[in-house]
Nucleic acid binder design. Structure first.
Length: 159
DNA sequence: GCCAACGTTGGC
DNA sequence: GCCAACGTTGGC
């Protein structure tokens, strides 16, 4: 099993939106970066665990966990000229972009903020904290995943 | 709103 | 293949 972090702007799609979905599952369309695509297409497997991250806003944070409910398949939004993710270079015969299905696992009672993570020595190597790290989908180590869970737990008990 | 850090595009 | 121009992401 692998571990990932997936970013979303809560104004566009939040963890609350995910919680409202049927079976708390949604397809993760719209990734239009080759590095991210390659990771999703080649490495994302059903059952992988995900840190669900809210970017932008005044307190960017990991707000919960999810899992991969379905491995990569073509992102058909790329074929829809009415979609904001439309890409004329992609076609059903030769799909350029891929997506996965994501299912909510647990929304944290207390988010683990970016600044808290920056202050955690055990997360020093985390991709998210690297300068210029912009990938919307990125790998996380198992220990980083566990540390974030513990931080969420600690924040909850403190609150 | 600013801007650093990328990524992409397209002329040459 | 180089690189300038432009676009995007996302923290601050």
């Amino acid at each position: 099993m692998k571990y990932w972090l997936m970013k979303t702007e809560p104004g566009t799609y939040s963890i609350e939106d995910l919680a409202k979905e049927k079976r708390k599952t949604t397809c993760w369309e719209g990734v239009r970066n080759y590095q991210a695509r390659n990771m999703m297409r080649d490495d994302f497997k059903k059952g992988d665990r995900v840190l669900f991250y809210h970017s932008g806003g005044k307190d960017p944070a990991v707000v919960g966990t999810a899992k991969i409910a379905k491995g990569a398949y073509p992102d058909h939004f790329a074929w829809d000229s009415g979609s904001k993710y439309y890409d004329p270079k992609s076609s059903p015969e030769n799909p350029r972009w891929f997506m996965v299905d994501v299912q909510l696992d647990k929304a944290f009672e207390q988010p683990v903020t970016l600044s808290q993570m920056r202050n955690e020595p055990q997360l020093e190597q985390m991709e998210l904290l690297r300068k210029g790290s912009r990938l919307s989908v990125q790998p996380v180590t198992e220990s980083e995943f566990e540390v974030v869970l513990k931080m969420a737990e600690a924040a909850k008990n403190k609150a």
